[in-house]
Design a protein around this nucleic acid. Structure first.
Lengths: 110, 110
DNA sequence: AATCTTTATCGTAATATTGCAATATAAAAA
DNA sequence: TTTTTATATTGCAATATTACGATAAAGATT
């Protein structure tokens, strides 16, 4: 049907999936990496950096913002986007936890 | 168009995005968490665990397997799925790296 | 004020995803 | 061998995503 049955999963599972989904596109990975590479939080030259049209980049930025992965400050008529540490931390902790858990049960698996 | 322009991104960016995309659905998060919670690598009672039809679960398992997040061993007529540590490690390192990087440039951002 | 610059939104076409019933496959059990 | 059990595949309907041209909105510049 193309519609996700969110109601049968926990709030945490849905939220985790939303975070991951937001990073489940190479353009959005590239945007995050670009934001990380510049020493200040540069805004719209992301469009120049990526071979994508401006509306497309804007849409990807919106999704990253909705997921809480980036945040934007208005500065004049431009907008300064940057990575939101909280989301990255959540992901770091999540995968760290799985990794630790797997370490413990080593050799109990395939 | 619904089609991702993979050719304009690096191989690494595409691969990272594929890993994240595979985890960008609550059912697949739930599957990974279930696999982690059982002390052996249980197979098809994932269907009983989730309120989804068997073909739907099978499809999600296939996507996780394609992305390299889980692996499956045939054992009789059943299949034993379990988490592939490599993928989790890749992601742990990836977000660990971003986190470290952000730590360094603290206060240079919004 | 008129224009430029920057970003967002709308509308739309092409394609992908989600979910399931029906069916296929293949090993195990009877 | 027939039946059961476990899983995968096919086909399809409903919905979501990706991408972009056209346009809007709003501050900056002239």
């Amino acid at each position: 049907m193309g519609i996700t049955k969110t109601e049968i999963f926990t709030k945490q599972q849905n939220e985790t999936a939303l975070l991951m989904k937001a990073l489940g596109h190479p353009a959005r990975i590239a945007i995050v990496e670009y934001l990380l590479s510049v020493n200040a939080c540069i805004c719209g030259d992301i469009v120049n950096e990526l071979a994508l049209a401006q509306p497309t980049v804007s849409q990807h930025l919106k999704e990253l913002k909705n997921a809480g992965i980036i945040k934007g400050n208005i500065s004049g008529n431009a907008i300064c986007y940057c990575i939101d540490e909280t989301a990255i931390d959540t992901l770091r902790v999540y995968f760290g936890g799985i990794s630790d858990n797997l370490e413990k049960k080593k050799k109990m698996c395939c």
